[in-house]
Design a protein around this nucleic acid. Sequence first.
DNA 1: ACCATGACTATAA
DNA 2: CTTATAGCCATGG
Length: 109
Amino acid sequence: MIMSKDSYYDLVFEITRRIPAGRVSTYGAIADYLSLGSARMVGWALNKSSAHNIPAHRVVNSKGELSGRAQFAAPDMMQNKLEAEGVEVKNDKVVNLKKYFWHPEEYDE
DNA sequence: ACCATGACTATAA
DNA sequence: CTTATAGCCATGG
């Protein structure tokens, strides 16, 4: 059976793909933008993103903490990728989140 | 339908 | 810092 009705998974993946390297967004911002009603949905969707090609490491929680780091292949992969893109991470959280924060409305390409 | 769980958020103590 | 409470809601047993 094919239930290919637009699932929110695809929407979350789509938005996450738009986050520019060197920038980060939050579960709450994405959930709000997509009117998902709950940031948990974003986290749940990203959890299933491993099979896709999604820069899920650019999504952090409202405090800038790397709450999803444990779900990657390596516990330090999330931080490594962010730092490689120029995002300063300290003690499992983004330093100066406001500076790197990206909102879906900023989509510009 | 009920219950537990979770890459969430906010507030309070 | 930690716990607790409350709201949130898809998913799986």
